[in-house]
Nucleic acid binder design. Structure first.
Lengths: 164, 164
DNA sequence: CTCAAGTATATGAGAGTTCAACTAAAATGG
DNA sequence: CCATTTTAGTTGAACTCTCATATACTTGAG
């Protein structure tokens, strides 16, 4: 089948998309690395843990909620454990499984990082969009999908404010 | 100043944005790596070179058009040069400068990679959006900005079809 | 009960990215 | 001209990510 090349509009949209998403990602990653000493992927992991009951999740569940591959998560949690931000516990019900648990130090690191991060999210994304665009963006992103999203029941009371 | 946390709508939008952009990036990167043996960043470099007159650009200009840091570009071009896809030439007018030149092999590699890549871009992004959403997405991405974009005068006749 | 198949996670090598130097060649300014 | 400051680009180390593989436990079939 002959290739369905992009027309000019699509081409422009695609390149704008690449530039914009790259910009957001790099901005946030740099901000977190500079101000909190962690990459964005680690931040996501801490966030998802902080929202879970007992600040605890099975590794695979955490991977899925944080949008991470299992391998990536495994490496990441190993580093987070070295820093004392996360701890791993064997799962009594399933000898293969492990729980990842957010430690108090990890919670504190997250709590310290969150405000600066949220501000940056605002500056980079929400402040430059009209309200209608924010709604449109959500619909678009939902269509693109791969939510992998834990839209799980009622957020735990133990998370850090309304985090980004 | 007290942190402007995200409200629920913003929170949802933000997470959908993260999931969606992650999904697009990973999908494309994997496709290119699997089918063409190169990461998306390398593909971008080849594309920008292929569009330039004489398929040649100064390193810094190429970095800016490909949305890459100079360091990243330098490393990447070193690898591309090892593969024989790009060649570097001293700039006669400026002894510090270098031209990056897309070789015929590099052009061929790009031409072979392009159709599969464009198909994947369509499947991942354009096929799942309504026409109105595509337009909205472009406006949104333009607002987010950091185009770094070479919206430079009239595309060279020497590029590979309408690439993604 | 046992063996095969499946699941949960870890591990290691290879590759790309970032950041902070570092080199070398212009430009600038007395 | 000479010294200083920019600018162009490179380099290396540290780190993260990916992919393939390995390990250990569980489940299901017979």
């Amino acid at each position: 089948m002959t290739t369905r090349w992009l027309n000019e509009d699509e081409q422009r949209t695609w390149r704008a998309f690449l530039a914009a998403t790259r910009h957001v990602q790099e901005t946030l990653d740099r901000q977190l690395q500079r101000d909190a000493g962690m990459p964005h992927a680690y931040y996501e992991i801490l966030v998802r843990l902080s929202e879970a009951p007992e600040r605890t999740l099975r590794m695979s569940e955490l991977a899925s909620r944080a949008g991470s591959s299992q391998s990536r998560l495994s490496h990441a949690v190993a580093r987070l454990e070295e820093r004392g931000w996360v701890r791993r516990e064997r799962c009594p019900a399933d000898g293969r499984g492990l729980f990842a648990v957010l430690t108090d130090d990890g919670y504190a690191a997250l709590a310290e990082a969150a405000p600066g991060h949220v501000e940056e999210v605002r500056r980079t994304l929400f402040d430059v969009l009209e309200p209608g665009q924010v709604a449109a963006l959500e619909a678009i992103c939902a269509a693109i999908g791969s939510s992998s999203d834990g839209t799980h029941g009622g957020g735990s009371a133990k998370s850090v404010g309304r985090r980004s």
